[in-house]
Structures are given as structure tokens and as C-alpha cells.
């Protein structure tokens, strides 16, 4: 039986791997269906300490992976399909193979939410996009909508102005929750127009997106707006399918950890990063809790 299995390969997972490997715990890390996690679809990361001029999200993840590898982390490039408690630890199944470990560090992160419209599904890849980095290129000289009010909505709006003629930033409140520096950048950008107190209630088009239906939440008024693309940046939901029924979750679905630690209610199961953090959700806080999880696992193992 192995001592540590880490599930997920964002900043939390790789940091846990670096610490666990340096503590000679020979960790095995499962990269999952989206290796590198959310930073893989971002561009410039300017607030991760240690990079004076910022670093590209995918590059940061590549560096963390190499660092974890250098200390001997065993990497499995596959998803974990099931996780259960067994005598003395846990059993994981990945790609038809069974693995056993005394402790598990859960760092499965969170996934971007969709608007939840039928038309959004139908027009996905036809003007509706989940990745501004990937698809901005296809909207050269076109008009797009970004939905949301947080940092990722600001980042996507700013990024899309490199290609789009006009970016309409649609938000359902009358103020943003994004950080001030990101808000200021958006508000100063002449290509971005903010549409407050509104939501997208439908996306129209046969072969591709041609318009969106906007509803003003205050007045109840709806209007059709010609548009070529729709990008949603409305927050995230924790990836908990693997631990549902196994571990305590809060009312929003995040894994509950004991205050000041990464311990869950299941002995030997530790959670770090966005899967247990509804509040901060930063790369650096994910890395911080990843470190904590490795130290917590090490302490747990030495007590056994």
C-alpha cells in the first residue's frame, strides 16, 4: 500500500506532491481529465509571487509539474473513476487499474459554471464558448458578450478586446465583485461596454449565434441584441463527484475541512485547493493549502 495518493493537478495538487515527495512519502498523483486545472485556460498570471513580470498560466503549471517530478512524484495521466475507504486506507480505480493508499489528498478543484440555457448547449462551438483563450481568435472584428462580475469575467473581457470589435460585459448586479485593478482596467477600456443589472435569458441562432436576449432585472424589460459570441464567466462549482457520500460537504457543495487544517471528517482524507475553498480561490491559496495537506498527511502517517 502506498502512503499518499493525490487526486488533481492544479496548484494545490502539485504543491502537495512537491512537499510529500520531499518528505520521502513517494506520492502518486492522478492528473485527471483537465491536467493543470483552471490555470490552463488563463493567459497572464500577474499575482503569483515570485514572477516579477507575470507568467503564463499553462507555463506555471508546467513548471510546478516538473518540480514535483524532480523529487520523484509518480504521475498518472488519467482520471480517478472511484474512491472508497478500505481497511487501512483507501482504494482508487483509474483507467481500469486499482491503487491503494493510506492517505488521499483531494485537490480536484472547481469547474466553470455554464449559464444553464438549452440554447447554450445547442450553440456550443457555434459562438458559445467556454474558453476565451482558445476561441477569442475566431471573433476578430466581431461583437461578443461576456457574462459575469468577478475577476475571470474582467480578465476574459480585457483579453477578448484583442480580437473583438466590441465586448459587452453583462452583469446581474450594479457593481462588480472583481478586484479593483481588474475593474479599473475594464472600465478604462473603450472597447468594453458594461451592461448592469441584466442577465442573458436566451441565445438565438440556427447554425451559429446571431443574437442574445437580455433581461433587465430591475425593470423586467427584455430586448434582443445582435451578437456573434457569448462567453460565460459566472463562477465555479467544486468537483466533488468522487467524494459524494464519502465526506461531509457544506451547503454549497464544497468539502468541509477542520478550521486551520486540511482534515476532512474522514481520517486520512485531506482536501486542499478550490474543492474546499469557496472564499479565496486563488492559485496561491490553493498552493498554500496543498502544502498544508502534505504536512497534515505526513503527520497522520507518522501517528500510524
Amino acid at each position: 500500500m502506498r502512503s499518499v495518493a493525490i487526486i488533481g493537478s492544479g496548484p494545490a495538487g502539485w504543491t502537495a506532491a512537491i512537499y510529500a515527495a520531499r518528505a520521502s512519502l513517494n506520492p502518486i498523483l492522478f492528473e485527471g481529465s483537465e491536467p493543470g486545472g483552471q490555470l490552463m485556460t488563463t493567459t497572464e498570471v500577474e499575482n503569483f509571487p515570485g514572477f516579477i513580470h507575470g507568467i503564463q498560466g499553462p507555463e506555471l503549471m508546467q513548471v510546478l509539474r516538473e518540480q514535483a517530478k524532480r523529487f520523484g512524484t509518480e504521475i498518472v495521466s488519467a482520471m480517478v473513476e472511484s474512491l472508497k475507504q478500505v481497511e487501512g486506507g483507501f482504494e482508487l480505480v483509474s483507467n481500469g487499474q486499482t491503487y491503494r493508499a493510506q492517505t488521499v489528498i483531494l485537490s480536484t478543484g472547481a469547474t466553470a459554471k455554464r449559464l444553464g440555457l438549452e440554447s447554450e448547449k445547442r450553440l456550443y462551438g457555434r459562438g458559445v464558448s467556454a474558453c476565451a483563450t482558445c476561441d477569442g481568435f475566431f471573433f476578430k472584428g466581431k461583437n461578443v458578450i461576456v457574462v459575469g462580475g468577478g475577476d475571470s469575467a474582467m480578465e476574459e473581457s480585457s483579453f477578448l478586446t484583442r480580437f473583438a470589435e466590441k465586448v459587452y460585459l453583462v452583469h446581474r448586479r450594479d457593481s462588480f465583485r472583481a478586484s479593483k485593478i481588474m475593474q479599473d482596467r475594464v472600465k478604462a477600456n473603450p472597447k468594453i461596454e458594461i451592461i448592469w443589472n441584466s442577465e442573458v435569458t436566451d441565445i438565438l441562432g440556427e447554425e451559429k449565434v446571431t443574437a442574445a436576449v437580455l433581461k433587465n432585472i430591475v425593470t423586467g424589460e427584455t430586448r434582443e441584441m445582435p451578437i456573434d459570441g457569448v462567453f460565460a464567466a459566472i463562477g465555479h462549482a467544486p468537483n466533488i463527484s468522487l467524494v459524494q457520500g464519502l465526506v461531509d460537504l457544506d451547503e454549497k457543495g464544497y468539502v468541509v475541512t477542520l478550521p486551520g487544517s486540511t482534515r476532512t471528517n474522514v481520517p486520512g482524507l485531506f482536501a486542499c485547493g478550490d474543492v474546499q475553498d469557496a472564499k479565496y480561490r486563488q492559485a496561491i491559496t490553493a498552493a498554500g493549502t496543498g502544502c498544508m495537506a502534505a504536512l497534515d498527511a505526513e503527520r497522520f502517517l507518522s501517528g500510524h
Binding site: 483537465e34 491536467p35 493543470g36 490552463m40 485556460t41 499553462p58 474558453c131 483563450t133 482558445c134 481568435f137
Partner: peptide, 10 residues
């Protein structure tokens, strides 16, 4: 595909 698209590279 394109060089700048992480899921494409996957």
C-alpha cells in the same frame, strides 16, 4: 487546433 489552445494540446 492551435498552438495557444491548451485543450487542443491535450
Amino acid at each position: 487546433w492551435a498552438e495557444w489552445c491548451p485543450p487542443c494540446k491535450l
